[in-house]
């Protein structure tokens, strides 16, 4: 009798996971980074403490900030969380997953970016405008590459619906696919750029000439800043989950395979286990890349993203040529 509520429960669990686990992932990445550099960490849970503290702080608004500035954090948070309800993070049975396919999902992130960039320009400072301008430059170059990368996966799976992609990839026979490898490399580069990680942007800097995302949210404080930060953490979490869903989907619940087999709720614990494992590894990979690379000059970024585009295109070509 309770079976009919399973989809709603799964959806709720998934949204809660996105909300609550995103700061943990960021905490994990920060802690790893500290260890790799021989510093002592603030603990895995510091991001939670940051967010909670910000929520209780007063807001200081710039004199000429308009309603766009005040509304942007909510819209950014809403669009990001909506994306979190769509990506199959733990199960493909989430009912909202059909709301948007992978192209529409990219557009959801684009809404968040659009409003962040507007908010950056609202206070009328040089930094805010600089951040917006750069963010939109990075985004406009990343988007074609992202589309080509996703396109390659959708060639293999003959669908753009993420749940269908997950289903085809994880239940089909195991095939070595160079196209997917290329697409993954390209996706990884774009994800680094989109989530503002090191070679493109530095999430932990306030040096004026190096920041992109931070420059846009410079004027925020209190709960607005908390929402912006939280949305940023969710974005990292969601790009990692999206990479997992598109390229390493084994273990996501609800497919009826030998892993996490049964439909309904029974597969969820295993799905959580695999998700945690994969995200932990993703964090290691992020730290590995961030420690190994230096932040690049802003005008090297087009070349970096151009590489991502070429990789994705090579993936598509090798699908036609070799598979």
């Amino acid at each position: 009798m309770t079976g009919q509520f399973y989809p709603a429960i799964i959806e709720g669990v998934q949204v809660a996971t996105v909300l609550l686990a995103a700061p943990l992932l960021v905490g994990w990445v920060r802690a790893l980074k500290c260890w790799s550099q021989g510093r002592s960490t603030a603990g895995l849970f510091q991001p939670y403490r940051d967010i909670l503290r910000l929520f209780s702080k007063d807001i200081v608004l710039a004199e000429n900030a308009s309603w766009v500035f005040r509304a942007a954090p909510y819209v950014v948070f809403g669009a990001t969380l909506m994306a979190g309800a769509i990506i199959p993070v733990i199960s493909v049975k989430a009912p909202l997953a059909a709301t948007a396919d992978v192209i529409a999902l990219v557009a959801l992130f684009a809404i968040a970016r659009f409003f962040t960039a507007l908010a950056g320009m609202d206070a009328g400072t040089a930094f805010g405008g600089m951040g917006s301008s750069r963010e939109m430059m990075v985004a406009s170059l990343a988007e074609p590459a992202l589309l080509m990368s996703v396109f390659t996966v959708s060639l293999v799976t003959r669908s753009t619906s993420i749940t269908e992609m997950v289903r085809v990839l994880s239940t089909g026979p195991f095939v070595l696919r160079p196209s997917l490898a290329f697409a993954f490399l390209s996706f990884a580069i774009i994800a680094m750029a989109e989530t503002g990680r090191v070679p493109v942007d530095n999430p932990s800097t306030h040096l004026e000439l190096t920041m992109i995302h931070e420059a846009m949210i410079l004027e925020y404080s209190g709960r607005h800043l908390a929402l912006m930060e939280w949305a940023g953490m969710m974005k990292l979490f969601l790009f990692s989950s999206l990479a997992i869903a598109l390229f390493f989907p084994w273990g996501i619940a609800g497919m009826g395979g030998w892993l996490a087999g049964t439909a309904g709720l029974a597969g969820l614990p295993a799905a959580f286990f695999f998700l945690a494992l994969k995200l932990a590894l993703a964090g290691v990979a992020i730290v590995f890349v961030e420690t190994g690379l230096a932040k690049m000059r802003i005008f090297r970024v087009p070349e970096f993203l151009g590489t991502a585009f070429i990789l994705a295109t090579l993936g598509m070509l090798s699908y036609f040529m070799l598979e």
């Binding site: 929520f55 209780s56 702080k57 007063d58 807001i59 200081v60 608004l61 710039a62 004199e63 000429n64 206070a123 009328g124 400072t125 040089a126 930094f127 410079l218 004027e219 209190g222 709960r223």
Partner: peptide, 10 residues
Amino acid sequence: AGVRRAPVWD
């Protein structure tokens, strides 16, 4: 939490 207006920080 309160809201107050202040000059741009920048």
